[in-house]
Design a protein around this nucleic acid. Structure first.
Length: 984
DNA sequence: GAGTTTGAAACT
DNA sequence: CAGTTTCAAACTC
């Protein structure tokens, strides 16, 4: 399948946004020579947890772009998108669905089967594998099971594993195809046990039931495991983070299973092998092994579980047969069988939930393996020597097997979900829309052919991995991500923003030395080989770091580099914070800070109502549902794009009556209003490829800007505390800046094109503010409004424009330069300190001659009054008052202007100071005294300061009114006298 | 449309 | 940080 944009547009044609599915992670144990460090790490559980995910000891400052462009770079890209978690309006429904965890999975009609598609890029392993029981079980390079029995085994077969909550898991190596792991909260009684057959020493965790195919002699079946703690004598919890995530991650709990019978599913973070090594099963994410989540793995399956639906990783063949399965299965197969030559390399890792699913399209032969089990995964592990290190065999339910590098498997996030319904639909264009429990939107996944033949890895199939994962923070946002071993990714939002993601790393602000809380938004500083860096910079790492961000006990264990986040596309989750009642978001923190900066004064100006502005004060939580279709696409240059289709909220538009100058369009998210996703998609379809790329790149631009902003936002200690506080309450929720990233990523909100400003419409149909006309700045300076707004120049009349994808390097350099000069360069200039507050210019204007009554003035242009932040001279752009209309003020201004322009005898204008006649010292003093009198009166009455302030201002207004009236009268007299004089 | 004005951005 | 220059939009004619 070609990954043309057009086809992707078709995919995007499905308008229903998916719940926050995000590209979560790539499971890459094999590549982690660095992970070996972790494996051998015998540190305490806390340390282990802290270090989780910090696989990379040496960070590379190499930008993603560079990495992606590195020749021969075929590593699967790990991208994490922290989506904006705002709920779509109506919030009630969306939030409810989200909280309930309902997820609907829909597949595109073009494909016979629906499946989240994962492109397997690795070489095919043709070697037969040893039986599972005879060889170490490996996933990737990680050995999850050793052939030898450990002293902990019970009867030489079972291994008792104590989990963090006191449960005991018995891991038993069995020759039987299915191994059961039982968990018992108190004792290894058989009654209250869940079975999973695991090799000794292997402690799978909170993962979907992994059941091998019947054909497989040796397999792992892990059901409903909770966070697993090895029975290491140290007793140190290896999974500190995961322990309390059961509610949020809700991995395995099936709807039918009650809490008593089924332990709360949690995710395994670390597993200790028989040889005593600690194996990191995943990085900060609940998913085990394949990272497949129990509930949600099954596309099209409706999983009803009190626990949150888990992200699903689906490896499916092009037919996507498994997608139609109502069940979510992840099968891990032990021995790898020799694949027949030419055999289809389309592995399917299908996760199906046994829960009550109402999937309408269950065409799959695969059925849920167990009623209670949430999901099963079929994965052929590289058994012993037969399987190359870092490879695993993935077998579909149809029996097809493929050897893949584990790093090419995208790990889905363990998003818990409580809803029980899931629907699957098939959309045209091969796009599969899935709805996950707890998600009100749809996630689209798609199988795309791998066109990159230059990869040194054998491509198993022309498939592309499209994985989405619900975030741990519930949201309505969904994202479809297609990941392939491409060099460049572009994210495109249906909102009209398309961002190239090749240099996602660059989007992450540099991490300040010693900074901890903002580590997630930092990028590595050090330079290293592109290959290593690319591999290192994985979403999983980010996940861990983000998770770490949520922890107050962030330590500096390991190298400082270890904590640097990579490839973070932070998606603020404001909605969830409010939905969950968690702490305030970063944005609110920032707003508070801004409010402090501007002081108590909060102008109540209503002189120029902003049309379309969401002044209802509705929180930003309620609006966003997005679908991020991260589909790699290669252009002529080999640049691949990840299209992020933001649904729900749609393309934002500026609601201003007039066009806004630079900076305003990024401002208040409340000003953005949703645009029908379908309309956006339709517009996008109409776009030409280069236009689409442009838009995609814009998203990146905005991401970069927002990342920078977010970094600066969270640097303040109190803000960090707030973040930590909020995130701590959210368990697995990742602390991300509350300001929705994709609000920023959105195209600037422009006035709805009412007239023939069609030219102002951007490619996505959204109104485009205007077109720049830069001639000397190359559109790479803030002079250029397009650049300043994070947009690419489109249909502009600029000269020598570098503000496009063709000059991305220069562009990014320019962006950095701007940010170096002013970290807030791309921040919104106009923001509202609090919801419902009057917007204010953050920096204030500096007008000298315009009186702030011309569009030269940014405040005036933004239709907001000048504030104390302004340094303007002769400002007349002041707050409006009910009793003083601006017309009067304008009249006064006119009087002044007229008075100042008095022709002398030669006919030239001379300065006339009569305008100052009205504002004598006495008048001013009297006015001030009146105001002071108000203050004194109020103080005596102990009235609120707000009221005092209000009345003082009113007093001032009244005084000005009188002055104006007087001035007008005098002016009339003046003109009359002047006329009489002239006549005389 | 050309020229002027203006103020933010950039520079020194 | 202040002053100057550059720049592009806003404005005027």
């Amino acid at each position: 399948m070609d990954t043309s944009v057009s086809s992707e547009l078709d995919e995007l044609g499905d308008t229903t946004p998916l719940p926050g599915l995000t590209l979560y992670d790539l499971l890459d144990p094999s590549t982690s020579s660095k992970e070996q460090n972790l494996e051998s790490d015998d540190n305490s559980g806390a340390d282990t947890d802290n270090k989780r995910g910090y696989v990379v000891k040496k960070e590379s400052s190499t930008t993603t772009n560079e990495l992606l462009n590195a020749p021969g770079q075929k590593k699967a890209q790990t991208v994490r998108i922290l989506e904006n978690k705002r709920l779509t309006a109506p919030m009630g429904t969306a939030l409810k669905n989200m909280l309930e965890g309902s997820v609907r999975v829909v597949t595109t009609p073009t494909k016979t089967s629906s499946a989240t598609d994962i492109k397997i890029l690795n070489k095919l392993q043709t070697k037969p594998l040893n039986a599972f029981g005879n060889a170490p079980v490996k996933i990737g390079s990680t050995t999850i099971a050793a052939p030898t029995t450990s002293p902990k085994n019970i009867g030489g077969v079972k291994t008792a594993i104590k989990i963090s909550d006191g449960k005991v898991l018995y891991l038993q190596k069995s020759t039987l195809p299915v191994v059961s792991v039982t968990t018992d909260r108190s004792a290894p009684t058989s009654s209250n046990i869940r079975h999973a057959i695991l090799p000794k020493g292997v402690t799978p965790s909170g993962t979907p039931t992994m059941k091998n195919n019947a054909s497989n002699s040796s397999s792992l079946t892990v059901r409903g495991l909770t966070t697993v703690e090895t029975s290491k004598p140290t007793g140190q919890s290896l999974n500190a983070v995961a322990t309390n995530e059961s509610s949020s991650s809700g991995l395995l709990k099936s709807p039918s299973a009650d809490a008593a019978s089924i332990p709360v599913a949690t995710k395994i973070q670390v597993v200790r092998t028989a040889d005593g090594k600690l194996i990191k099963l995943n990085q900060g994410s609940p998913p085990v092994l394949l990272n497949a989540k129990p509930a949600t793995l099954g596309v099209r399956t409706s999983v009803s579980s009190t626990q949150a639906a888990i992200p699903t990783a689906i490896l499916s063949n092009n037919s996507n047969k498994l997608m139609n399965k109502p069940t979510a299965q992840v099968i891990i197969k032990g021995p790898l069988k020799q694949l027949p030559a030419g055999a289809s390399l389309r592995p399917v890792i299908n996760n199906s939930s046994s829960s009550s699913s109402s999937s309408s399209n269950s065409n799959n032969a695969t059925t849920s393996t167990s009623s209670s089990t949430i999901a099963s995964a079929t994965i052929a592990t590289s058994a012993g020597s037969s399987m190359p290190t870092g490879k695993m065999l993935v077998q579909s339910s149809t029996g097809k097997q493929i050897v893949v590098a584990s790093r090419n498997i995208i790990k889905l996030s363990p998003k818990p979900s409580t809803s029980t319904t899931s629907n699957t639909n098939t959309t045209a264009g091969g796009l599969h829309a899935i709805q996950l429990p707890g998600k009100s939107g749809l996630q689209y996944v798609r199988v795309l052919p791998n066109n990159n033949s230059s990869s040194n890895e054998i491509k198993t199939s022309p498939q592309k991995v499209s994985l989405g994962r619900p975030r741990t923070t519930s949201n309505n946002n969904s994202s479809t991500v297609s990941v392939s071993n491409t060099t460049k990714i572009v994210m495109k939002t249906t909102g009209g923003s398309i961002v190239p993601l090749p240099s996602m790393q660059t989007l992450v602000p540099r991490r300040a030395p010693g900074a901890t809380s903002n580590a997630a938004y930092t990028k590595p500083l050090s330079n290293s080989s592109s290959l290593d860096a690319a591999r290192k910079h994985r979403l999983s790492d980010i996940n861990v770091q983000l998770k770490q961000l949520t922890s107050d006990n962030v330590t500096d264990s390991g190298s400082p580099e270890a904590k640097k986040a990579r490839y973070v596309i932070a998606m603020p989750h404001t909605s969830m914070t409010s939905a969950t009642g968690s702490a305030t978001s970063t944005a609110s923190t920032s707003q508070k800070h801004m409010q402090k900066l501007i002081g108590a004064r909060v102008p109540q100006v209503k002189r120029v109502p902003v049309q379309g502005a969401n002044m209802t004060g509705s929180n930003s939580n309620t609006t966003t549902r997005k679908v991020y279709n991260l589909v790699t696409k290669s252009d002529a240059n080999g640049v691949k794009y990840m299209i992020c289709n933001k649904g729900g909220e749609g393309k934002p538009r500026t609601v201003f009556n007039t066009t806004m100058r630079r900076g305003y369009t990024l401002a208040d998210t409340k000003l953005r209003r949703p645009l029908a996703l379908a309309a956006q998609q339709a517009r996008l379809k109409q776009m030409k490829p280069h236009q689409q790329r442009q838009i995609v790149a814009q998203v990146k631009q905005r991401q970069l800007q927002l990342q920078k902003q977010q970094q600066s936002t969270i640097t303040k200690p109190q803000q960090q505390q707030q973040i930590l506080k909020s995130t701590a309450s959210q368990d697995t929720k990742i602390a991300v800046p509350s300001k929705p990233l994709f609000d920023v990523l959105k195209p600037p909100q422009m006035p709805v094109p009412v007239t023939g400003a069609a030219a102002a419409l951007d490619a996505l149909g959204g109104s485009r503010r205007k077109h720049c006309n830069c001639s000397k700045s190359q559109c790479l300076k803030l002079y250029c409004d397009c650049f300043a707004n994070g947009e690419f120049c489109q249909d502009c009349t600029c000269k020598d424009c570098f503000n496009n994808l063709d000059y991305e390097v220069k562009r990014e350099r320019a962006i950095r330069s701007c940010l170096e000069r002013n970290p807030s360069a791309f921040k919104p200039k106009i923001t509202a300190p609090n919801s419902g507050d009057m917007r204010l210019h953050n920096k204030g204007c500096n007008c000298k001659r315009s009186g702030c009554l011309k569009n030269y003035c940014e405040c005036y242009e933004a239709k907001i009054p000048c504030s104390t932040m302004c340094k303007c001279v002769g400002c007349r752009n002041m707050e409006d008052r009910p009793d003083v209309d601006m017309d009067s003020m304008d009249s006064l201004a006119d009087v002044k202007l007229q008075a100042n322009k008095v022709k002398d005898l030669n006919g030239t204008y001379i300065q006339d100071n009569r305008s100052n006649v009205y504002l004598t010292d006495d008048v001013i003093e009297a006015t001030i005294m009146c105001m002071i009198s108000r203050i004194v009166t109020h103080e005596k009455q102990n009235l609120p300061i707000e009221e005092t302030e209000r009345e003082v201002i009113e007093e001032l207004g009244e005084s000005l009114n009188q002055i104006i009236t007087f001035a007008k009268e005098k002016n009339d007299t003046f003109h009359t006298d002047d006329h009489k004089t002239t006549a005389a």
